[in-house]
Computed example of a mutant assay.
Amino acid sequence: MAIKITEECINCGACEPECPNNAIYEGGVEWTISDGNAVTGEYKLFNGSVVDAHFKNPPISDDTYYIVPDKCTECQGFHEEPQCASVCPVDCCVPDEQYQETVEELLAKKEKLHL
């Protein structure tokens, strides 16, 4: 499953540079699938909708850092554990129960994001 940042976030920003998928954004910042990777063209999101990889999506949170579930792989294929959670000083990076994925699905997402 993806990781989420809870409302306990203190906006320190320690998590953002640690994400190998560029899935973490500062509150209020728009996100795209293509941020930090070479993905182009159409990309299918969790909710079934298809967006252009360069389409600017609205922020998931305006107040705190947030993680885009469609880009989060829990660091599978990169690290032993989610790096955002390992560097968070207030332990606000936790599993997101809304997005259940197997290790195989997370690795497939990694491959799709890192052509």
Score class of each variant (00 low, 15 high):
D35A: 12
K44R: 12
A23W: 02
G36I: 06
E80W: 13
C93K: 14
S61L: 00
S86E: 15
P95F: 15
H114P: 01
S34F: 03
H79S: 15
V94Y: 15
F55N: 04
E30V: 03
D96M: 12
E26N: 06
S34T: 05
C88K: 05
V90Q: 09
Q98M: 10
C72G: 12
Y66P: 00
N11G: 07
N11H: 03
E8G: 09
Y43L: 06
I67Y: 00
T40H: 07
E80K: 15
Q76V: 15
E16R: 09
K44H: 09
I33K: 05
V50D: 05
T32M: 12
N21I: 01
E80C: 10
D62T: 00
E101P: 00
C84G: 13
I67M: 04
V68T: 03
C12F: 13
K109Q: 08
E42D: 14
K112N: 06
Q100I: 14
E8K: 07
D62L: 02
I67G: 05
L106T: 01
Y99N: 09
P82A: 15
G36L: 10
N11Q: 10
G28M: 01
K4W: 02
A53M: 10
N57M: 15
P82H: 14
V103M: 12
D62W: 00
K4P: 07
Y99Q: 05
E104S: 13
G27T: 01
C92E: 07
H54Q: 02
I3S: 12
C72H: 08
L107N: 07
E111D: 05
A38M: 06
Y43D: 09
I67L: 07
A23P: 08
F78R: 05
V103P: 03
C92S: 14
K110C: 02
V94A: 10
I24N: 02
I60Q: 00
G28S: 10
I60R: 00
V39D: 09
I5P: 03
K4S: 13
V90H: 11
N57K: 09
K71T: 11
N22S: 08
E81F: 14
E97V: 13
K44V: 08
C12T: 11
T73N: 08
C9Q: 08
A2Q: 08
I5L: 05
K44A: 12
S34A: 14
G27Q: 04
F46A: 02
E81P: 04
A38Y: 08
E80F: 14
N37C: 08
C72S: 10
A53V: 03
T6N: 07
Q83T: 15
Y65L: 00
E8C: 01
E104C: 07
G28E: 07
T40Y: 03
I33S: 05
N21W: 06
A38N: 09
N47T: 02
K109E: 05
I60C: 00
E18P: 14
M1Y: 07
S61D: 00
Y66V: 00
I5C: 13
P58A: 09
S86F: 12
L107C: 06
G48H: 11
V51W: 02
K109V: 02
V68S: 01
V68I: 12
L106F: 04
Y99A: 10
H114T: 03
C72R: 04
G13I: 09
A2R: 11
G28P: 04
A53D: 10
K112H: 02
Q100H: 13
I33V: 15
Y65C: 00
C9M: 13
P17Q: 08
K112G: 01
N22G: 04
D91S: 15
T102M: 05
N37W: 05
D62N: 06
H114N: 11
N37E: 10
